[in-house]
């Protein structure tokens, strides 16, 4: 798993590539938690290069989303595909989070 972050106005755009599994999920959670600690409130998670996510990854996402909600922040997603899209669908995460087809679409809503 690799994480690249950049700021677009008030939005922290997080590109995550590779795999978020039980081994890498804690790193993902820690990385985003640090940004929350720095005061970031709006996150766009770009998943166009994410090949795989398991329930451990979803658990981390939910944990971060819960923290953000208490700070009036939010977490958006874009460019889900393949197995990642399927996992979001089956888990119901596709309904509880807002998912955009492109980064551009997501940033327009922020």
């Amino acid at each position: 798993m690799e994480i690249n972050k950049r700021k677009e106005k008030d939005v922290m755009v997080v590109s995550v590539s590779g795999r978020i599994d039980a081994v890498t999920a804690p790193d993902f959670e820690k990385n985003l938690s640090e940004s929350i600690g720095d005061g970031e409130k709006t996150f766009l998670i770009k998943m166009n290069q994410l090949e795989y996510i398991s329930s451990a990854g979803l658990r981390s996402i939910l944990a971060i989303a819960k923290v953000l909600k208490t700070r009036e922040g939010k977490m958006l997603f874009s460019e889900l595909h393949g197995p990642v899209k399927d996992v979001f669908k089956i888990s119901g995460f596709g309904s509880i989070f807002t998912i955009y087809d492109t980064e551009e679409d997501a940033l327009k809503q922020c």
């Binding site: 398991s54 329930s55 909600k69 119901g92 509880i96």
Partner: peptide, 22 residues
């Protein structure tokens, strides 16, 4: 319960659910 929102949603149980579903 996969219909719950962020606040109500619990963090566990999804992995086994995947196995049963898939």
């Amino acid at each position: 319960d996969i219909s719950l929102n962020i606040d109500e949603r619990h963090v566990g149980g999804l992995g086994i659910y995947f196995v049963k579903q898939l």
